[in-house]
Design a protein around this nucleic acid. Structure first.
Length: 807
DNA sequence: AGTCACGTCGTTTTT
DNA sequence: CGACGTGACT
């Protein structure tokens, strides 16, 4: 009995393929990681490949770590020599060694998105480009796409000749790139692109790595962009014992799970693999081991609506399982409440621990309602994404100190902290220094060192010199062997008074910040203890720059996980709640209104497919009729993707109508019984022409009344959902409420409330209370009522049937 | 120089 | 709604 016996025939074929290019089309849950790890074991054990010559590339550290662990388990001796790493850290490692040939310093800084934004702002200011006319992001994304395609500033300029707008971008690109270099910094895209440049210009380096990495494996291949493909194309080139060229490249991917087109992922990489490598072996893994039949069939039905895909169909031997459920709630609050409560019930009654659950949504902003409910119901949870630890102000400040010490050329870092904490160095001073540095072609920090030569600084000069000497003192200490990174951090916190300032501040957020700083120190210590190579400042900064939030996810901790669909790729959970299934949210309005909607909606559909296929046992889809977004109320109808799931796979649940009234606030306000919507057997149950679909007929009513005064009215008729702000939709009359087919808003009597601030009112559940505040929120009033012992509640006047009590 | 109030605007997704 | 930038004011 060997470890390979447990593989199915296709998996086994993939595992036993040793030489030459191979494309593995691995459907969701088809055991691709298993194949990859077994193949590595097979190469080492059966084909005598030296582990040192195997490289596996992933996109996230988490995936890399998992693969490493699984390889370690099945490969005996030498597994630690296998190079398992992300694209980005691989490139950093290569560049740290060879980048000097490209004119950069070896301890370059890696710029994150915030740094990029700061730099581009400087560039635009310098080139006197009005950011009101063209937004920074336009330039940044143009530059990023260029880099994803491997287009240099010079090439870009050539292609831009004669095109005014493109020339403008070209100039920005050139200046941006020039400044990156002066700052001795690389952005994320540069990491890949500069590595390719290095290989193209330095055959010695290229041959070294070609010779070293004779077996290359790429995970999530559908997410690679053009420049990443170029990179692996360059690397996967070795000579065998007969002096013949071999491309021992094994890529694993699923075109149906390609969800990063916005980041430059090029689906052609997977679709054209066989053109690029005519001798490629193609293997399809179509047996799914993860999900029930019902879940898998639902996913298959949805993805089947996409045209641009390789035809395949996943199947499973698993049991049918329960049906997919769908429920449309009245509000996002109700949705969150029900989802969290049902998780709590499953935990309470069936003893299912919290780490079996995932709540998935399209956008990070949607996490908030869930978080509130989780706290309220004391359900342990972890949110992936939203605010990354390393994006917090205090952390960025301290990292900027570290960067300043590590790479004095990084002007962005120096400018960030030169006046943090306050040193009385103001904008005018900085401008003078900047001017001086440009004139003398030196870095910003070097200009600071020559502050006494800069005209017009006045009293600021001494402040600058004391800052510089502080940095220099620390730098000199760093060269001592006994001075650890932790010491360094503490020295900064002490010497700058950063910590003291926070300790003296008595607002609550200061406490959190101190906590975060301690967390940062922990991370530094962990790095120093666990580093495989001698710990260095650059090494730490690099690790920090390349972490993704998903990397912190630990499967065994007992909490519910909340994250976006994008973050969920590659993960699996027994119970999945896919929330916010509404047209305009998912698929997003951006995709619906794109110039090429068909294409963009296909990407959304793939995302939906990814979401459904995360589930092992149960999947619950849900939507809300009404949702708060960016301070305005949106009315959305159920996602078109719901319609794509055949009725026989779906259980439509009616939102539970627990009594008529809110339990707390308007979040649990009367939930309209949804069942009339779902009496039809047809697939098109949510089509707008369906007379039973109350939500969309409601929308249509709103359109007619509100369109003239609405924001963004262009193309409104093609929009499936309505979103308007109370203030912009002010034009319509409250009587609209009377014409509505639903009763929710029947009481939405703007201007005709029977009570006011100070009045005593009666609530069916909470009893008597006093109205303490009344504000226009959405399309009716938000009423704050003090119910004494029951607490102070906020509710919408239309939902909470409040009766005035005459006293 | 630093603070505060007001106005604007909105990345869907992230290595 | 809330984060962030701008500009006026202290």
């Amino acid at each position: 009995m060997s470890i390979y016996d447990s593989l199915n025939p296709e998996q086994r074929r993939a595992v036993e393929h040793d030489r030459g290019p191979m494309l593995i089309l691995a459907g969701a849950g088809s055991g691709k990681t298993r194949v990859l790890t077994h193949r590595i074991a097979y190469l080492i054990e059966e084909r005598n490949v030296n582990p040192y010559q195997i490289m596996a590339l992933t996109f996230t550290n988490k995936a890399a770590k998992e693969m490493r662990e699984r390889v370690d388990k099945i490969v005996g001796y030498g597994a630690e020599n296998i190079w398992v790493s992300t694209f980005h850290s691989t490139c950093v490692r290569i560049l740290r060694r060879f980048i000097e040939t490209l004119g950069y310093d070896r301890n370059f800084t890696i710029y994150d998105t915030d740094d990029q934004k700061t730099l581009i702002r400087e560039v635009l200011k310098f080139l006197q480009i009005d950011t009101k006319q063209t937004k920074e992001r336009v330039f940044l994304s143009a530059i990023s796409s260029a880099k994803d395609e491997g287009i240099s500033p010079e090439e870009f300029e050539l292609s831009a000749l004669g095109d005014y707008n493109k020339m403008k971008i070209s100039n920005v690109y050139k200046e941006y790139q020039r400044r990156l270099k002066t700052n001795n910094a690389l952005d994320f895209d540069d990491l890949i692109m500069k590595t390719v440049e290095l290989f193209q210009s330095n055959t010695e380096a290229l041959n070294y790595y070609r010779n070293r990495f004779r077996y290359i494996m790429v995970d999530e291949y559908q997410d690679t962009n053009t420049i990443q493909f170029k990179l692996i194309r360059l690397l996967a080139h070795s000579l065998n014992e007969y002096n013949e060229v071999e491309h021992n490249l094994c890529v694993v991917g699923d075109d149906d799970q390609s969800i990063y087109k916005f980041r430059g992922a090029n689906i052609r990489n997977i679709l054209d693999f066989e053109k690029e490598f005519p001798d490629a072996v193609v293997i399809k893994l179509e047996q799914n081991y993860r999900s029930t039949k019902n879940i898998l069939n639902a996913a298959n039905e949805v993805i089947h609506n996409n045209l641009g895909r390789k035809d395949k169909s996943l199947w499973t031997d698993n049991e049918d399982g329960e049906q997919v459920s769908f429920c449309q709630y009245d509000t996002d609050f109700a949705e969150a409440t029900q989802v969290v409560d049902s998780i709590k019930t499953l935990n309470d009654q069936d003893g299912i621990s919290f780490n079996n659950f995932a709540i998935l949504y399209r956008t990070n902003a949607q996490s908030r309602v869930f978080e509130e409910k989780m706290i309220q119901r004391s359900v342990p949870y972890k949110i992936i994404g939203s605010i990354n630890f390393y994006q917090r102000k205090e952390i960025k400040d301290l990292l900027a100190y570290l960067k300043t010490i590590d790479n004095g050329l990084d002007g962005i870092a120096v400018k960030r902290i030169i006046n943090v904490p306050k040193r009385g160095i103001g904008l005018t001073t900085l401008d003078r220094v900047e001017e001086f540095s440009v004139k003398n072609n030196m870095s910003f920090y070097d200009a600071l060192r020559h502050a006494e030569n800069i005209p017009g600084l006045g009293r600021s000069t001494s402040k600058i010199t004391s800052f510089v000497s502080f940095i220099e003192t620390i730098k000199s200490k760093l060269s001592s062997d006994t001075f650890t990174l932790k010491d360094l951090m503490e020295e900064i916190l002490e010497g700058t008074g950063y910590l003291k300032e926070l300790e003296e501040a008595d607002d609550e957020s200061a406490e959190d910040r101190i906590g975060n700083i301690n967390e940062l120190i922990n991370k530094i210590v962990t790095y120093e203890v666990e580093a495989t190579e001698p710990p260095t400042l650059s090494g730490f900064l690099e690790e920090v720059a390349l972490v993704a939030d998903i990397d912190s996810l630990e499967e065994d901790s007992n909490h519910v996980v909340l994250m976006t669909l994008h973050s969920a790729k590659g993960l699996e959970f027994p119970y999945v709640y896919l929330c916010g299934m509404e047209d305009g949210i998912f698929p997003s309005y951006m995709s619906i209104n794109a110039e090429n909607p068909e294409l963009e909606i296909e990407e959304e559909r793939r995302l939906c497919y990814v979401g459904i296929t995360r589930a092992m046992k149960q999947i619950h889809l849900s939507a809300a009729r009404q949702r708060m977004m960016r301070g305005e109320t949106q009315f959305n109808r159920p996602s078109r993707f719901i319609n794509e799931i055949p009725r026989y796979l779906l259980t439509i649940q009616s939102a539970q109508n627990k009594g008529y009234l809110a339990k707390d606030s308007y979040g649990e306000s009367p939930i309209r019984n949804a069942s009339p919507n779902f009496s039809t057997q047809s697939r098109g149950m949510f089509d707008s022409d369906n007379p039973f679909d109350k939500s969309s007929s409601y929308n249509d009513t709103m359109f007619d009344k509100a369109t003239p005064s609405m924001r963004g009215t262009t193309g409104i008729n093609s929009m499936p959902s309505f979103s308007g702000q109370a203030k912009t939709a002010r034009g319509f009359q409250p009587s609209v409420g009377g014409t509505l087919p639903t009763k929710n808003f029947g009481n939405s009597n703007l201007g005709t409330l029977a009570y006011g601030v100070g009045d005593t009112v009666k609530h069916i559940k909470f009893g008597q209370g006093v109205v303490t505040n009344l504000t226009k929120g959405g399309r009716d009033y938000e009423v704050t009522v003090d119910f004494g012992e029951q607490g102070i509640k906020k509710m919408l006047s239309s939902f909470a049937k409040l009766e005035k009590i005459e006293d």
